[in-house]
Simulated scan of single mutants.
Amino acid sequence: MAVTRADLAPGRRSTDLSSKTGSFLMVLSILCGIFSFVLCLIAETTRSKVTWVLSSNTGQERTYECIYNVSGRTPLLCAAGAFVGLAIAMIMEHVFMLIAVSTSTPPALIAWTPDSRFPKALIWHAGFFFVTAWICFAVAEVLMMIGLGVESGHLRKWSRPRPSCLIVREGLFSAAGVFGLTAVLFAAGLYLTALRAQNLQEEEDNARREVLDASILYASPPRSPRHRIAPSLNENSRVRQYQNDQYSGGDPSSLNKSMNPLDLDSHRC
């Protein structure tokens, strides 16, 4: 069985972008983002609401107080889970990409040269995905922290009337979930961009290696075959005919002389 270049090439490490570990972590990060989005939707539907009731009516002055309808524990737990899940997804995804890109030789998104076939648009795509992902992540985390702070303020004695009540505005948790899911998807786009850049870099390196091997092969001069000087056919026939004549004459001394190359040369002359 023939050995090819692919057989001699080293296997992919677990820190490579195209490894199974990278694919698994990217899928896990997207699932964490979806899970965080679902928790934000649950927090939105179970968020606390207030009801204003008349507490006192003395003449022309009326005093109203507010009462929470729920304790806020359910939206608090959902928002906390979404906050932690989104943070884990983003950190896990970007830490793996950072390790993979820094350990690759050369780094896929850094080894670009002006004379390379490397598409320059990939650099801009990677920068756009990176910046947008972290902006969306920051907005989502801030919105979740606001919701956590509001919902944690009435865990106890939530049914008691109060002169003022803080509630989360409608759509805050939903917006946090949308921004969080968008951040995870942009991070996945960054991973795909880095993976494409690495594949193009490998193709370019393979093409350069093949050109170098071909240039070395054609640059080396061909070896000339070794020629062995052999007596010609006419010369062999003449020597054999002369020996037969000497045998037929029966003179041993002449036969010994015939075996001497110098005598043969003189005889030819």
Rank of each mutant, 00 (worst) to 15 (best):
residue 101 V to L: 13
residue 76 L to P: 00
residue 105 T to Q: 02
residue 101 V to D: 13
residue 41 L to V: 14
residue 78 C to L: 01
residue 107 P to C: 06
residue 193 T to R: 05
residue 96 F to I: 12
residue 100 A to D: 11
residue 161 P to L: 13
residue 201 Q to C: 07
residue 143 L to P: 04
residue 110 I to E: 14
residue 71 S to Y: 06
residue 257 K to Q: 13
residue 231 P to C: 01
residue 225 P to I: 00
residue 266 S to G: 02
residue 145 M to E: 11
residue 156 R to G: 11
residue 141 E to A: 05
residue 59 G to T: 05
residue 7 D to Y: 00
residue 35 F to C: 06
residue 14 S to N: 06
residue 162 R to K: 15
residue 207 A to V: 05
residue 61 E to A: 10
residue 143 L to W: 05
residue 260 N to H: 00
residue 215 S to L: 02
residue 244 N to I: 04
residue 18 S to H: 13
residue 2 A to I: 07
residue 49 K to I: 00
residue 124 W to H: 10
residue 57 N to S: 12
residue 58 T to C: 03
residue 195 L to K: 14
residue 28 L to G: 15
residue 253 S to Q: 14
residue 157 K to M: 06
residue 196 R to Y: 04
residue 265 D to Y: 08
residue 244 N to L: 11
residue 179 F to G: 02
residue 197 A to R: 05
residue 71 S to H: 09
residue 59 G to Q: 05
residue 35 F to A: 10
residue 200 L to R: 04
residue 267 H to Q: 12
residue 198 Q to M: 11
residue 236 N to H: 14
residue 257 K to T: 06
residue 107 P to G: 09
residue 220 S to G: 08
residue 225 P to G: 01
residue 131 V to H: 13
residue 221 P to F: 04
residue 63 T to A: 02
residue 210 E to N: 01
residue 145 M to V: 12
residue 192 L to M: 04
residue 15 T to L: 12
residue 94 H to A: 03
residue 177 G to H: 08
residue 35 F to R: 05
residue 206 N to V: 01
residue 23 S to V: 00
residue 260 N to W: 01
residue 211 V to P: 03
residue 146 I to K: 13
residue 191 Y to P: 04
residue 17 L to F: 04
residue 181 L to P: 05
residue 8 L to D: 06
residue 192 L to Y: 03
residue 124 W to G: 11
residue 179 F to D: 03
residue 3 V to F: 04
residue 217 L to Q: 12
residue 150 V to L: 11
residue 124 W to I: 13
residue 133 A to D: 11
residue 101 V to H: 09
residue 32 C to S: 11
residue 98 L to M: 04
residue 263 D to C: 10
residue 182 T to I: 09
residue 141 E to T: 03
residue 11 G to F: 10
residue 206 N to F: 08
residue 110 I to P: 05
residue 161 P to Y: 15
residue 38 V to E: 10
residue 21 T to C: 02
residue 22 G to M: 08
residue 244 N to G: 02
residue 81 G to S: 02
residue 190 L to K: 14
residue 257 K to P: 09
residue 55 S to P: 07
residue 123 I to N: 07
residue 58 T to V: 04
residue 89 A to P: 00
residue 35 F to H: 09
residue 102 S to G: 02
residue 113 T to W: 11
residue 36 S to V: 03
residue 164 S to Y: 10
residue 214 A to D: 04
residue 82 A to Y: 00
residue 249 G to L: 06
residue 55 S to R: 14
residue 115 D to Y: 03
residue 155 L to R: 12
residue 80 A to N: 07
residue 142 V to D: 10
residue 236 N to K: 15
residue 169 R to Y: 00
residue 173 F to A: 03
residue 178 V to S: 13
residue 46 T to A: 07
residue 71 S to W: 06
residue 205 D to K: 00
residue 136 C to M: 06
residue 224 S to L: 15
residue 33 G to I: 12
residue 25 L to D: 07
residue 129 F to V: 06
residue 220 S to T: 14
residue 152 S to M: 13
residue 65 E to V: 00
residue 70 V to I: 07
residue 256 N to E: 07
residue 88 I to S: 06
residue 168 V to W: 01
residue 195 L to Y: 08
residue 23 S to G: 01
residue 103 T to Y: 11
residue 79 A to K: 06
residue 69 N to Q: 08
residue 227 H to P: 10
residue 182 T to K: 09
residue 66 C to P: 05
residue 184 V to G: 04
residue 75 P to Q: 10
residue 158 W to K: 01
residue 235 E to D: 12
residue 232 S to N: 10
residue 47 R to Y: 09
residue 51 T to P: 00
